[in-house]
């Protein structure tokens, strides 16, 4: 009863009723996966944004990378990467990090096309991101700008999952120990040289598989076990 009124699917239903068509409407048209599902039976979308900064209101998404996990395998057929076209010039500091120049941005897809692609991919899936509040924040703002509607998706944050695993093993956390690069190193995953949205999405996906295997060696865990409560 409680979850029927206040759970994520009830919220989804209310948002769905505000919309009439479009990718967000499609996303909300089906119920989110049941939290009692075994994770091997659920499909995930691992998402990473490169942005001009962390200020959700004033910064911009400049590129998107995503890849799906099905049956606990990362499917490269689903790998997608795109640079998002923007009218605003890039601040110099972010160019250095992401090596994306203004010229490249002009060749990218428009914001609307990119958002719709992400929303379409997410349908029937669970979102995974590392430090997910960045991706969730920007997605929410984009949905508000374009669809005048809030964004909602059940999400697993690999940073929180890693924190849980490390604390369970009584490992002292330091300032940087929850960053993607350090976590990969800790779990002996090979280092990727490139730094872009897709390679970071794949990195995050690999980290997710490691964390699941570390927390549940028999892989018999449900979405609820991983912290999805709704």
């Amino acid at each position: 009863m409680w979850s029927k009124l206040f759970g994520i699917n009830a919220k989804r239903q209310r948002l769905f009723e505000l919309l009439h068509s479009g990718a967000l409407y499609d996303l909300y048209s089906d119920p989110f996966p049941n939290p009692k599902s075994l994770i091997k039976d659920v499909s995930f979308v691992v998402l990473d944004f490169e942005t001009t900064g962390l200020d959700i209101k004033n910064d911009h998404v400049i590129s998107v990378g995503l890849v799906e996990i099905q049956n606990l395998g990362i499917k490269l057929t689903t790998a997608w990467h795109n640079i998002i076209k923007t009218e605003k010039n890039l601040p110099e500091s972010s160019t250095v990090i992401h090596k994306i120049t203004d010229d490249m941005l002009l060749q990218g897809v428009g914001l609307r096309v990119a958002l719709d692609k992400i929303l379409t991919s997410l349908k029937g899936h669970i979102l995974i991101a590392h430090h997910a509040q960045v991706e969730l924040g920007f997605l929410n703002r984009l949905c508000q700008d374009i669809y005048k509607c809030n964004f909602l998706i059940p999400t697993i944050d690999t940073q929180l999952l890693a924190k849980r695993q490390l604390l369970r093993n009584q490992i002292m956390l330091q300032e940087n120990s929850l960053r993607l690069f350090h976590l990969r190193d800790r779990y002996n995953l090979p280092a990727y040289k490139a730094h872009n949205a897709l390679s970071d999405a794949i990195s995050t996906a690999e980290l997710f598989l490691v964390l699941v295997a570390e927390l549940y060696p028999d892989l018999d865990c449900t979405l609820k076990d991983l912290g999805l409560k709704y």
Binding site: L72, I74, L76, T77, A79, I202, A205, E206, V210, P217
Partner: peptide, 11 residues
């Protein structure tokens, strides 16, 4: 070939 790869973690 690369596009059809699946990445998996085996414990």
């Amino acid at each position: 070939l690369v596009n059809h790869l699946t990445i998996r973690y085996l414990r």
